[in-house]
């Protein structure tokens, strides 16, 4: 075997010229090349196809959010509107009371996800780094919370916050916390919010892989355990923190289930309600403005515009943070 062939082997190119035994070298090279081209074509086709199915609902929304009423009944128009208009957005914007709902939701969801991040990181760190009785049990319980369907605790949770008495500590039948932000704050700061078991688990796996020497060095330098956590461990946990924060924010933003329990059906101005109320308000506004009842299709245009405005903040956040996404997942516990 020549030197060149050996080098090819070492560099992971077993097809280096001298190694080819079967067939004429040239023909084989061509065959390999065609194979590669075909595969990359197939791959491109698959990715484009699947990608299309993924963004299809988004495309439908975008297309119909800029349609004018005339386009609806134009038989030529199916996808691309002939007379694009921003009227639907204006209608949705006003009937959702968008600035108000956006501000409320952003504030609430940011506070909730920061609290969740803080509490889950703390708990995850404790499970990864300290030895104490009951640690394994707590880890198991954190996973267990994920498996229980939220509907199981729907009614008791509702009632507990309706008559919140802190295990009987508050006399007089308890206070009604529904409709306030307290239920969100309480569950988030005690690491029992939406899918928080997953976050605890991820943080635990992440901190487990951090070198133990880091912690010991901090102790030798006289740092307290909490100080060690804040100024040594946290600065090194960037990707994991971003991933957990992104998931927490997105899930909380999209959540209707807990939000509807915690607000107790009261008209707190939050995004999910704003989206629901489009149908009602836009209808009233339409009647007021044009003096006739809007057709169902017409309302659907408003709703699609509203839906796009609903997901816009999350899409923007995702666009900014997506680079850290895979990296973070890789380093957090989601991988076994």
């Amino acid at each position: 075997m020549s030197r060149r062939a050996l080098r090819g082997l070492v560099q992971g190119r077993p097809n280096a010229p001298e190694l080819r035994v079967h067939g004429r070298p040239r023909a084989r090279e061509i065959a390999v090349k065609t194979q590669r081209t075909i595969w990359s074509l197939v791959r491109a086709g698959l990715i484009v196809g699947v990608g299309f199915i993924i963004i299809y609902p988004l495309l439908v929304k975008i297309a119909s959010s800029i349609m004018s009423p005339e386009d609806l009944f134009d038989s030529v128009v199916k996808w691309i509107p002939r007379r694009p208009t921003l009227q639907n957005y204006v209608m949705a914007f006003t009937s959702m009371n968008y600035p108000r709902a956006l501000l409320n939701s952003v504030t609430l969801v940011t506070v909730v996800s920061v609290l969740q991040l803080a509490s889950c990181t703390l708990v995850g760190y404790s499970l990864a780094r300290y030895e104490y009785p009951g640690r394994r049990l707590i880890s198991a319980l954190a996973i267990f919370t994920l498996v229980v369907p939220p509907q199981l605790v729907l009614i008791p949770t509702y009632l507990n916050f309706r008559f919140f008495d802190l295990f009987g500590l508050i006399p007089g039948g308890g206070i009604n916390l529904l409709g306030t932000y307290w239920p969100f704050v309480l569950t988030a700061s005690t690491a029992s919010g939406l899918r928080n078991g997953l976050f605890i688990f991820s943080m635990r796996q992440f901190f487990r892989n951090m070198p133990r020497q880091l912690q010991e060095a901090a102790y030798v330098d006289g740092a307290s355990p909490f100080r060690t956590f804040v100024s040594v461990m946290l600065p090194n946990a960037g990707p994991a923190l971003i991933t957990v924060f992104l998931f927490s924010f997105v899930w909380q933003w999209n959540d209707v289930f807990y939000t509807s329990i915690f607000t107790g059906g009261k008209a707190v101005e939050l995004m999910p309600y704003a989206l629901e109320s489009i149908t009602r308000y836009a209808r009233e506004m339409y009647i007021e403005r044009y003096g006739m009842v809007p057709a169902g299709q017409q309302l659907s245009l408003f709703r699609n515009a509203g839906a796009l405005m609903y997901i816009a903040p999350v899409l923007i956040l995702y666009a900014f943070l997506q680079r850290h996404f895979v990296e973070g997942i890789e380093r957090t516990g989601l991988v076994g």
Binding site: S119, L122, S126, L127, Y130, L141, T187, T190, F229
Partner: peptide, 28 residues
Amino acid sequence: RERITGMVFALPFVIGFIAFFLRPILQS
């Protein structure tokens, strides 16, 4: 000290689990 710190750090979840999870499940 480590043991106590660990327990203190895990305390939020323990409280949350009992108050907002275990109790509702039993109630349900």
